[in-house]
Design a protein around this nucleic acid. Structure first.
Lengths: 186, 186
DNA sequence: TCAATACCGAACTATGTGTTCATTATTTTA
DNA sequence: TAAAATAATGAACACATAGTTCGGTATTGA
């Protein structure tokens, strides 16, 4: 990818994230984005068809390495996040969030960002579906699998939202305990 | 209220509900609403400041009697819905939904209607908060009350959404069983 | 060096929002 | 039932935002 393209793309993402933490997605205009990113109007539309696609691509970029790190879990990763192979994927995710190494938290917690949350849940469900056999959800036996996955995913997202919106006073282990209590695991 | 006002208001609500089951809230224009409702533009704005307020007032109207019937539960109500005083409030709500006596189901299940769901959850939380002592949530002891209430409310909404979007094949008792399994009650 | 291409910027069309106001129709009340 | 009050009409209006177009300029990669 051309360096100019990379720079422009990055500038748009940065401006957009800034604006998203200030106001609702629907209230953000393209004019504001390009002004903050300091690029031309035509340039914006050369990169993103609409504001919706911008959010979609930003989401994918943000989710990419956080989900990948859980999927392709390896020794290096476990060392960085100080966890062992028996920790649940959810604790891994909470750890990632607490480290706040990217802008994902800012977006997960801001008001009126349901579209972003929907994208997050979609990816999270795929992850849960893959890991489902590893988790012992005997207490949900008899319920349709997609129903259970949706429940776990929703509960996780709601837990993160509550956590962030309450100032993240709890540690990653604590909030994982809370979450586990809801799902009755371990 | 003037009969003309009532008629106009009703026409707007009906047109709006129709459009909401066709497309996203954000994609609906005032022009479409007034065309379907067959009223003038100025009339619309005489009734509702914005499209957002329209949704808010519609929501309140729809929620009003469903939540009231649970709150001011009496013999007549129990007779109509064939339930006894020990049934949980959630079973009551599932019963209401299965009867589908108003348009609430249409709106709860349609895509991209997060604003409506947020209003619903807000009212539902108040109801749950009131009923919380009656329910025995010992398994959630140690967790902040608002966190627990949010969890119950979210789980209920997700259950209803899944139920409706899967064709409501389950009976009200069955879906209430599913829901109870998630919350580990009874 | 040079061809490709990304950016610029300004103008333009199109669409939707919300307001205004004089006129007409309906309802309320005295 | 007549008069006053109120609601609806419809068309025009100003305004904001979206998304496009295009000739000129700057940057890049080979």
């Amino acid at each position: 990818m051309d360096r100019r393209q990379r720079k422009t793309r990055e500038a748009i993402f940065d401006a957009f994230i800034d604006l998203l933490s200030e106001k609702d997605f629907n209230q953000i205009t393209v004019a504001e984005i390009i002004e903050k990113a300091d690029i031309g109007r035509a340039t914006f539309y050369a990169h993103f068809e609409t504001k919706d696609y911008l959010l979609k691509e930003l989401s994918e970029e943000l989710f990419c390495h956080i989900f990948d790190s859980v999927n392709n879990e390896n020794t290096e990763h476990r060392h960085i996040f100080n966890c062992n192979e028996h920790d649940s994927i959810f604790l891994h995710l909470f750890r990632h969030f607490e480290k706040n190494d990217n802008n994902i938290l800012k977006l997960l917690s801001c008001r009126n960002n349901e579209l972003f949350l929907r994208y997050f849940k979609t990816d999270l469900k795929l992850l849960i579906k893959k890991q489902l056999p590893a988790l012992n959800y005997i207490q949900f036996e008899g319920l349709p699998e997609d129903f259970v996955i949706n429940h776990i995913s929703s509960t996780f997202v709601e837990t993160v939202k509550w956590w962030v919106n309450n100032g993240m006073k709890e540690s990653d282990e604590e909030i994982n305990e809370y979450f586990s209590k809801f799902l009755h695991i371990k």
